[in-house]
Design a protein around this nucleic acid. Structure first.
Lengths: 132, 132
DNA sequence: CCATCTATGTGCAAACTGCATATAGATAAT
DNA sequence: ATTATCTATATGCAGTTTGCACATAGATGG
């Protein structure tokens, strides 16, 4: 099962768009520097169905973005709570976001191609074919 | 890099929608029984950007679909060439396709949520901010 | 006989992800 | 003061998916 909504997903069970958290984080950082925990909360704006995004995945993506120089980070002492690693988007990261957007537009086209194939096909099979 | 179009992808480099070949194959089989090689050719109808879908992936997905009783298969001697393993969609597979479609609609919603967040954000940043 | 096309498959390594768990400072409750 | 909870970051692990390379084998044409 594709691990999607309603068909029981296990550990490595994936669904939806690959690495989709990455462009979401990049977009959030385009709005200004932020730290992992805050980004995690702001990710809810993108409404991932039900699940509120796994924190470990978020932190790992942020570190991998830094490895590739798409973001930079520095430690700061907040007004309260433990120290935070604050990330900022770089110019390279900005361009990377643009590539992601193009890629997602292509994904969107592919998705709609599927939907149109689907409805076109289902028009010809509108009688409920009682398959066993 | 997300392995997408234009940023160099390696072996385990994934992109786009997870297991997307699965609903495509199910939809093709909904149109009538077929074998792997033929399905592989018909997949071009879904226009996966440039790459024409990897054959090993297609064959593996077909076997995994049979394992879960979403399709059945039988061997046939064609008019020409080697024997073919011909797959047929089962009723269970038909329902599985419906779940896939719902899942893809949700993916579509999430994708458009991203796009609207993106354009909404970019409206406020229309001046080209020369990030280094 | 050899190259090529048709057709199906395995091996492998890289990559992604969700869950569990670890760590630790700060804050609130008892 | 001790304990629990919240904030914040991170690692380990195992399951899953994927693309590339490669293997196998029958059929067909030169």
């Amino acid at each position: 099962m594709p691990g999607g909504r309603g068909w029981g997903g296990g550990r490595g069970c994936r669904r939806g768009i690959n690495r989709f958290l990455e462009p979401c984080l990049l977009l959030l950082l385009h709005g200004g520097e932020s730290h992992g925990y805050q980004l995690l909360e702001n990710l809810s704006r993108f409404g991932f169905g039900d699940a509120p995004a796994d924190s470990s995945t978020v932190y790992r993506i942020l570190r991998s973005l830094e490895e590739k120089d798409f973001v930079t980070s520095r430690w700061t002492e907040g007004d309260s709570g433990p120290a935070r690693r604050v990330y900022s988007l770089s110019g390279k990261g900005d361009r990377y976001l643009q590539m992601w957007v193009e890629d997602l537009r292509e994904t969107d086209r592919i998705l709609h191609r599927f939907f149109s194939e689907y409805s076109e096909h289902m028009e010809l099979h509108c009688e409920s074919d009682g398959k066993n």
